[in-house]
Every structure is written in C-alpha cells, then in structure tokens.
Amino acid sequence: MLIENSLVKLRPMQLEDVDAIYEVAKYPEIWTHMSINVNGKEDVLKYVESALKTKETGTEIPLVIIDGQTNKIIGSTKLMDIDKKHKRGEIGFTWLTPSYWRTAINTNCKYLLLSYCFEVLEWNRVQIKTDHENFRSQKAIERIGAKKEGILRNHMVRKDGTIRHTVMYSIIKDEWPETKQYIEQLLK
C-alpha cells in the first residue's frame, strides 16, 4: 500500500524505519498532546514495535509520512479503530517534525487518507479526535471540513496523570464528495 501525490507519500511503517523516525521525532514539542513521550531511540523502537503489533490485529494501519520532494520520513499517522463490519475507522496519532508544521503536508495527508478510506475501503465514517487543549489540532481538523460532534468528557488519562476531554470530529460517506472538493480547493 502506497498512497501518494506530488507533495507527500504514505506507506506502511516498518521496523527498518526506527532510525529515520528517531531523527525527526526527537523534538519534545511533538509529544505535548500525545499519549507517549519519545526521549530516545529506545522509545522510538517501542513505538514502532507497538504500532506493528496493532497492525497484526487488523485494527490499525500505521504509516510513515514521507516528504515527496526529499523522500525522507517526516512523521507518522495511523488508520486506527478500524471496524470492517461497520465500515468505519479513525485517522489518528498523526505527528510531523516541527519544520513541517503549518505547511500543506498535513492537509495533503488527510486528503490522501480520506480518499483512501472513502473511495478504496468504502467506509461509511471516518473520525478524528483530539485533546480539548490541543487548539492547533482542532483548527486543522476543522479546516479540512470535519464536523465537530462533541466532547467526550473525562475520556482519557494523559501520560502525566491529568484528565483529558476528547473533542470528536467526523466526516461521513454522504459528505465526502463535497468535503473532497473543499479540500481540493484548499490544496490549490
């Protein structure tokens, strides 16, 4: 599986990606709102091994994000919480190395993943969720046209032990054609 356009490539994560992921993941600001910390190569190895185990269960597809110009790994994302019976899943655990923040890369990733989910996998629903304090992520999700469904209160315990409320968004199959056109306009 390779999903790509001229700016970005998404391909399945591999154990051999540990060194390349470590090089772009060693910035603490990436992990502020994430459920893990990456403080060294050993953490990256655990992260990749854990992601590959979930792939074996069929509930997640961990992917690396590759800059289409340099062919270097610049981040990661997942299709997760996959429910084949109900034809739904989630785009999540997305992160980019900070030099790619506020670029077109994340929008391109979401566009490619949503196209894959709705047009190849034929899902009925794709959800995206984020921490209630991650305003940058909320703005990015809203920018691509996802609908805010609400907040799951006391949904998770953060790595520091504090409570996280989760802001839920989704796009459904009926909305995809219009949302797709909207995202394509953003990308021009």
Rank of each mutant, 00 (worst) to 15 (best):
S35P: 04
W31S: 08
A25S: 15
G89I: 02
E142S: 07
V18R: 09
T70Q: 09
E49V: 13
Q138P: 03
M168T: 10
F118C: 05
G92H: 01
N71D: 12
K26L: 10
T179H: 06
G40I: 04
W101K: 15
K188T: 08
K129N: 09
R125T: 08
I128G: 11
A25Y: 06
E142K: 12
H33M: 11
M156H: 11
D67A: 12
R102K: 15
R88S: 05
H86K: 14
D174K: 14
L96F: 07
Q181D: 08
Q185L: 13
H155V: 02
S76Y: 01
T97M: 06
G150K: 06
C117V: 06
R136G: 06
L121M: 12
N124R: 13
T94I: 11
E178W: 01
Q185E: 13
K129G: 07
K9V: 00
R125W: 06
E184S: 08
L114C: 06
L186W: 01
Y22N: 14
K55G: 01
C109P: 04
K180M: 08
P98W: 01
N124K: 09
K53N: 15
L112D: 03
V44C: 13
Q69S: 14
I66F: 01
K78V: 03
K26C: 14
W176P: 12
L187W: 00
T70F: 10
K26Y: 11
E4M: 00
S99A: 12
E149V: 12
Q185T: 10
V44H: 06
Y182P: 06
E49Y: 05
R11F: 04
T59W: 02
T70S: 15
A20H: 13
K46L: 12
Y27N: 10
E178K: 04
R164M: 04
R11Y: 09
L79R: 11
L152I: 11
F93Y: 15
C109R: 07
T77N: 07
K147F: 05
L2I: 14
I61D: 04
I171K: 00
K78H: 06
L52D: 07
R102Y: 12
S50A: 08
I21F: 02
L187V: 00
Q181N: 09
W176L: 15
I82D: 08
Q14R: 15
T57H: 07
I65L: 14
L63R: 07
D81I: 09
M156R: 14
N124G: 07
V18I: 15
N124C: 06
D17R: 12
L45Y: 10
N108A: 10
P62R: 02
K53M: 15
V120W: 03
M13Q: 09
N154P: 01
E175Q: 11
G40H: 04
D19M: 04
G75K: 07
S115Q: 14
K72N: 11
L186K: 09
P12S: 13
S170M: 02
E184F: 04
W101A: 15
F118K: 03
Q138R: 05
F118W: 01
T77R: 04
R164N: 02
I3P: 03
I61Y: 08
A51C: 14
K85N: 11
L186Q: 05
L186F: 03
D131C: 11
N154T: 03
K72S: 10
V8M: 00
G75C: 09
K9R: 14
Y100Q: 15
